[in-house]
Design a protein around this nucleic acid. Structure first.
Lengths: 239, 239
DNA sequence: CGACACCTTGAAGAGGTTCAAGAAATGTGG
DNA sequence: CCACATTTCTTGAACCTCTTCAAGGTGTCG
């Protein structure tokens, strides 16, 4: 639960293109730095924020991997997303000034803390930042539309294919391999995200494996036939 | 597809509290009126906007009832929401300057057209409006989290109960009965929204009816035991 | 009034879940 | 660093919920 704290600059961050707007000129760049007050380290298994907690800030992930989830009254968990470097979390908290989901670090992580009051002040000053904030929120809405399609209409095989293709695309955009990666989450967490039980996730992995589409060694996944996977993905823009 | 056009003022609209921020003083109120350029009438069965269309505006529903939906590559439809008076649609278009879903009028409707450039300009001038826009988007994100929970974890009975309770709550907030209402959508559309087939929706209605929980006469629903329904609803804030 | 869309209901079937057991990996403490 | 406990993963078999297919009924609208 403890979190160490740092001071750093966006203007020199190599993730800037992922989480910040482009189109800032050099002189405004320092202003951008004001968005991030501090950085915060989160240990694997710790919560960045949780349901019910007062909302103050959005968080830009610098390193590490998170899952966000909501819980029903009777304790069922629904994973609402997996987030990695350059992605923004905390948007759920804006509407009621309290977070409505939990954000848990699946590996040791570091985030940039961006007080939302501050974001709002700066967005009024810089239209390009304002636009960026709007786009981030809209992107999340569109992503969730895709998830509704997946959960409402897709078979287990399609769901898992979609999950893998999406994951590998995002990792690839961050400079990692297009064919090999390590799953940061358990079968159960994948299942919760996809509306499946962990056994079904496991069986579907095995099926893909038998068909030579992927190679599965626990959490290590290698994609052997990317086209076969993509053929199963019938979602629109579920990024 | 044709749409008639009107000019009107937000400041005198009785739906203002639903779709616009409170906290504007009298003098700024005319500024608020500038948000809505025109009104537009949509006939039942017509599209307000559709997937791929250039995004220019958000729409505040004045009268009528809409469904929004996305389609997969192979033509499956997923209803992403049903919207009524005072609710805002079009947020999906912000991220890529194109709409990614279809918005279809389930009954004759009238909407206020709010060019988004305009909203952005005015939000920079009026923090209360800026905050409002952020909250609307965040609310939609939170609603969709609830839908993911519903689609990923709930039984058919729980899904339909949730749907009915949610619908009646929103209608009640708009001055309608707490126990009786008319469904504006077909069984198939309800099913698409809830990730069920129309037969399952119909059967579940029949089951509730046999148990004396509701009375079903085609699209006319009367809730007889609201507590029994609410007992089935285990979602957090799925408004 | 007739055509058409929508809804209901039954029966059979499929996909995913549940329950259970064992295997593999991971973590812990001596 | 190894032994043991624990967690995670895999796989099988039975089961269950929802779907599919089919037929008939009901309501609606030109």
């Amino acid at each position: 639960m403890k979190a160490e704290v740092f001071k750093v600059a966006c203007s020199s961050c190599n993730l800037r293109e992922l989480c910040m707007p482009v189109g800032f000129d050099q002189k405004d760049m320092h202003k951008l730095d004001e968005i991030v007050t501090v950085r915060k380290k989160i240990k694997q298994g710790d919560l960045l924020f949780e349901n019910g907690e007062i909302f103050t800030s959005l968080y830009a992930i610098r390193t590490g991997f998170f899952k966000t989830s909501v819980a029903s009254e009777d304790g069922r968990e629904q994973v609402t997303g997996f987030q990695m470097a350059g992605e923004i979390i905390g948007l759920d908290g804006i509407v009621n000034d309290r977070h409505t989901c939990n954000a848990l670090a699946l590996e040791d992580a570091e985030v940039c803390v961006m007080p939302f009051d501050h974001i709002e002040d700066l967005s009024r000053e810089f239209p390009v930042l304002q636009k960026h904030v709007h786009k981030i929120m809209s992107r999340e809405i569109v992503r969730e539309h895709g998830m509704m399609m997946l959960l409402g209409n897709m078979s287990a095989e399609e769901r898992l294919a979609n999950f893998l293709v999406n994951l590998v695309q995002r990792l690839f955009a961050r400079g990692q391999s297009q064919s090999e990666f390590i799953l940061r989450m358990s079968r159960e967490e994948i299942g919760s995200y996809l509306g499946l039980k962990l056994e079904t996730v496991s069986r579907t992995f095995s099926k893909y494996s038998e068909e030579g589409i992927i190679e599965v060694k626990q959490k290590h996944i290698k994609i052997l036939k990317p086209d076969s996977l993509k053929q199963l993905v019938k979602l629109p823009n579920c990024n």
